[in-house]
Structure formats: C-alpha cells, structure tokens
C-alpha cells in the first residue's frame, strides 16, 4: 500500500503559442465574413453544399472549388443551454447551437442569442429545433468566425 502522507502535489502549466497560415478555402470563407457574407462551396462529385467552406469533401475525398453564397439564414439542428460558467465561453445562460445553412450537408457550431426570457430555464423551451436564425454581425470584422457575434431568430 502507498503511504499517502508522502504525497506531494505538483502544479504546472503549459502556455504554448501556435501559428498557422490557412489556405484559400478557409481564407475565402473568413474573408466573406468580413463582408457579412456566409459562403459555402459545393462538392463536384456529390453536389453537397459545405458551409463553412472546406478545401475538400470528407465523403468523396475530392477538392471543392465551386463557390456559393448563402442567404445567411440558418436552421437549428441541435442546441444546448449552458447554465454554468465555462472558461472561454460567455456568461450563462447561453445557448450553443449546431446550425445548418440552407440545404448544406454540413452544419457548424455557433452561439444563439436574442431569445427573450424571464427565467433562464425558459430557454430550454423557447429554443426550438428547426428554428430559423440570422447572423448578428460584429461592428469590427477581422475575418474570424467570431465576426458573427451570434445567431438570432429571424423574426426577432
């Protein structure tokens, strides 16, 4: 048996910076956000619309080069209301959604906001799968997914 009275706790930290230069597909998608456009691209083999745009199609493993500008309206496919504070996430309650643009074969993750509530718990009921959302744009856009602050109901 271990004699735990000798146990000592070691605390340590990693703080490593990383840098990468993204290629053309991600560039065009992120550059589109600067101009308040949500761009996708279409696989030449399966005709699947990819939003966000990707360099290649996972299913067919072919390069995607055909561009498509979506309306910017997305549909909630799934969501989760968060009631506790997580490092790097907004103050609770906040809603993380899996949203899909038009008839895209891919969906993506973003924040959902602008749904009114009195008690946070109401958000579970008021957020609905299939709900149509539109982007709320940041004033200063730099070509980052956060150029969209969050998505909000179309009729809000």
């Amino acid at each position: 048996m271990q004699d735990i009275s000798y146990n000592k706790r070691f605390e340590y930290n990693w703080d490593v910076p990383f840098k990468v230069t993204l290629g053309e597909s991600y560039f065009r998608f992120l550059d589109g956000l600067k101009n308040k456009k949500i761009l996708g691209n279409i696989c030449p083999k399966c005709n699947g619309l990819h939003v966000p745009a990707r360099p290649f199609c996972d299913k067919c493993l072919v390069e995607i080069t055909k561009w498509y500008e979506t309306s910017g309206i997305v549909t909630i496919e799934s969501f989760s209301v968060t009631y506790v504070k997580f490092l790097g996430l907004p103050d609770p309650p906040h809603i993380t959604g899996i949203v899909r643009a038009e008839n895209a074969v891919t969906s993506f993750l973003h924040q959902i906001g602008g749904i009114p509530y009195d008690e946070p718990k109401e958000l579970d009921e008021k957020t609905k799968i299939g709900m149509k959302l539109k982007p709320v744009w940041a004033e200063k856009r730099i070509g980052d997914i956060q150029d969209i602050l969050y998505f909000t109901p179309v009729d809000a």
Binding site: T21, G23, Y26, P55
Partner: peptide
C-alpha cells in the same frame, strides 16, 4: 519552413492522400 506552407493540417493531409 514553419508556417510557410499556407495550408492547415487537414488540407495538407488531404492533398497528399488524394
């Protein structure tokens, strides 16, 4: 060199696999 490729890992992996 480091960060001189102009592609993220997924794109580079795709290119050579294809």
């Amino acid at each position: 060199g480091q960060n001189e490729l102009g592609m993220w890992n997924d794109e580079a992996t795709f290119k050579v696999s294809k």
